[in-house]
């Protein structure tokens, strides 16, 4: 891992990063338990990608910058202000779910007050939305950036090419972050693309490219921070590839059987939370009691969020007819 001080982060920053990573992991793990207990129909995970997400989020300005995320970004949106209760209300599809009012599956992030654009399930469409938001910043002369994320599988879609080409042409303040966890459901990278590093494609779009260790939040922070600087200084877009690890199956409906047990076990050695904790201990940033306190604090937060969401009512049946158009509810 990079040295946090050398990339401009304080010990307190590191603690905050770890807290967001851990909170997201705990929420994610709880949703799996609830799924296996038959209480949630579906879960899709951030586990293993928290370092990439928090590293990126930390390099942005939460007041000004905009996210166009993808379904694994629980840690990223948590950093941007999505609360544990909001995450659980979405998971249970209960009334008060800010992300979709119980309309979408969990993992489809959205929250206007935290600058998180609404996502659908069709992958890679979000790249163009970030590029469009960045065009707005250019039109209005605003010093803001849009960050979009996607898996490496999504780089095969046309919208990836169309969006980055346009962002390159107009030097737009957009950062495209590939969270390369090496699998698109079951399809491995060698069947997805032929280039050695996806970041090399940046050259073809006339933009800056970076390839970083996605299990190292400081490396991701450094790359995204520099990308943000370039973006707000009119130097254009960046394509960053963070090599990451998917610690779970694709989703709760996937058996992960296409990966050997050996491979899955080995992935645990790359668990970014474990690596981060080791780093913090080694650098004397936090001691055992601090880690225990955080664990205890989050246990309560996750438990309360779960309980409150579980006890919340469902949206009413006829709410299904609302918000089709501005002027009238349909039906």
């Amino acid at each position: 891992m990079k040295n946090h001080e050398e990339v401009g982060l304080t010990d307190d920053d590191v603690k905050e990063m770890y807290r967001t990573m851990l909170l997201s992991r705990k929420l994610d793990e709880r949703m799996w338990l609830l799924n296996r207990a038959g209480k949630l129909p579906f879960v899709i995970s951030c586990q293993g990608q928290e370092a990439t997400q928090v590293g990126a989020g930390f390099a942005l300005d939460r007041e000004e910058d905009v996210l166009s995320p993808y379904y694994r970004d629980l840690a990223l949106v948590t950093h941007f202000g999505m609360t544990p209760l909001e995450t659980m209300l979405s998971a249970f599809a209960k009334e008060g779910d800010i992300q979709s009012g119980g309309r979408q599956m969990p993992g489809h992030f959205s929250k206007k007050t935290n600058n998180i654009l609404s996502q659908g399930s069709a992958v890679t469409t979000q790249v163009l939305h970030a590029v469009g938001a960045a065009y707005k910043f250019k039109l209005d002369g605003e010093k803001r950036v849009a960050l979009t994320t996607l898996g490496e599988g999504s780089t095969s879609q046309g919208d990836f090419h169309e969006g980055l080409n346009f962002a390159g042409v107009h030097k737009l303040p957009v950062i495209c972050l590939i969270e390369n966890n090496k699998y698109a459901i079951s399809v491995p990278t060698h069947l997805q693309y032929a280039v050695e590093k996806l970041s090399a494609r940046a050259h073809g779009y006339g933009m800056h490219g970076d390839h970083v260790d996605g299990n190292d939040p400081f490396a991701v922070y450094e790359a995204v921070k520099a990308a943000r600087e370039r973006a707000v200084n009119g130097e254009g877009a960046s394509l960053i590839e963070a090599m990451s690890t998917r610690l779970t199956a694709h989703s709760s409906d996937d058996d992960d059987a296409y990966r050997t047990l050996e491979e899955r076990e080995k992935n645990k050695e790359e668990d970014c939370l474990v690596l981060m904790k080791d780093y913090m201990v080694e650098k004397d940033i936090a001691d055992d009691s601090w880690f225990l306190d955080v664990e205890e604090e989050f246990k309560v937060i996750v438990k309360d969020a779960t309980k409150d969401a579980e006890n919340a009512p469902y949206p009413k049946a006829e709410d299904a007819l609302k918000n089709v158009y501005e002027e009238a509810n349909n039906g």
Binding site: V66, S68, L117, S118, T125, V127, L128, H129, A130, V131, G132, A133, A134, Y135, K136, L139, A146, G158, D159, E162, G163, N165, F166, V169
Partner: peptide, 19 residues
Amino acid sequence: PLAESNIVGTAIGAAMMGK
């Protein structure tokens, strides 16, 4: 550029931001 999905997709992004 000559890319229709880009024309509409970026318009959507800008529209969500208030344009």
